[in-house]
């Protein structure tokens, strides 16, 4: 079911007419409206928007933590009915279990994986090494820096070798230096392993630097405002001229989305 190598063949995402409403103080609030988007296997898509534009809700729909009120969300052709190990999820905070060591936190994602104990051990060790934390297997979360803890969260998100990795502002709480370092590591990892990636961010530079395509969203109700393709390979130069030009386009699209009162 999750043999390595076939990862790049999976991870196709389809959103068709997706809508989502929440009740806030007894009032219906439309958070997402008419979202249509297809993400191809192996693609790295960033979702960019101001807070309150529904981008996190969109990611939670993909994760299966929320269910759409309208339209459908499909992963590899199947409607997403709930959470599953075929999708990895990384939150803004590391959200590690404080009573488990690094290795145990990563292994926690494999509890219900169809692997024998030996394969699980190898997968855990391999993914800890992959995020550069070899030697920290037995450390507890409170002994780690923010960047290290988020690396563990990424290892936990990938250890099932999901076809789709979902990240909700994963680097937002890190210092600038660590953020750039982890961006590069994630992009290199994704280029090597080929999993489809959806990353939510409010940082224009991050969205452009990482994404093959940048989906710009407008708030209230959350809609797709523009989709900007970034025709650059990997690795990228942060000072690339094209990135600079796209930066202006993205900012313009984003600015149009803001209500005048804001």
């Amino acid at each position: 079911m999750s043999a390595p190598g076939d990862v790049a063949a999976r991870g196709r995402v389809e959103l068709r007419g997706v809508g989502k409403r929440f009740r806030v103080d007894g009032r219906e609030l439309t958070v997402l409206d008419g979202i249509d988007l297809v993400i191809e296997p192996g693609e790295f898509v960033t979702i960019l928007g101001a807070s309150g534009c529904g981008k996190s809700t969109l990611l939670r729909l993909l994760a299966g933590l929320e269910h759409p009120d309208a339209g459908e969300v499909r992963h590899d052709g199947r409607a997403i009915a709930g959470t599953g190990l075929e999708r990895g999820l990384v939150f803004q905070e590391p959200r590690l279990f404080p009573w488990l060591t690094v290795a145990e936190n990563v292994a926690a994602a494999l509890l219900n994986a169809p692997l024998d104990a030996d394969a699980k051990r190898r997968a855990v060790a391999g993914h800890i090494a992959m995020v550069g934390l070899g030697g920290f297997e037995r450390a507890y979360p409170h002994q780690l820096s923010g960047g290290m803890a988020q690396r563990v969260a990424i290892a936990r998100g990938l250890v099932n070798r999901p076809g789709l990795l979902l990240l909700d502002e994963p680097f937002g709480a890190l210092d600038a230096f660590t953020r750039e370092q982890l961006q590069d590591e994630l992009r290199a990892l994704q280029a090597r392993e080929g999993f489809t990636t959806v990353l939510v961010t409010h940082d224009v530079e991050e969205a452009l630097y990482l994404g093959d395509r940048v989906v710009v969203m407008s708030p209230r109700p959350g809609r797709i405002r523009a989709v900007i393709a970034v025709p650059l390979g990997q690795p990228r130069d942060r000072a690339d001229e094209l990135l600079g030009r796209l930066h202006h386009a993205a900012r313009a699209a984003l600015r149009d989305t803001l209500p005048l009162a804001a």
């Binding site: 959470t83 599953g84 999820l89 905070e93 279990f97």
Partner: peptide
């Protein structure tokens, strides 16, 4: 609640949630 969501994302069974999340967190 954030850790409850992680348990959900990792597709833990109700028993796994009790023994590996609720009891250690409440310990």
């Amino acid at each position: 609640a954030p850790l409850r969501e992680v348990a959900a994302a990792l597709a833990w069974t109700p028993w796994q949630r009790l023994t590996r999340l609720v009891l250690p967190a409440a310990l």
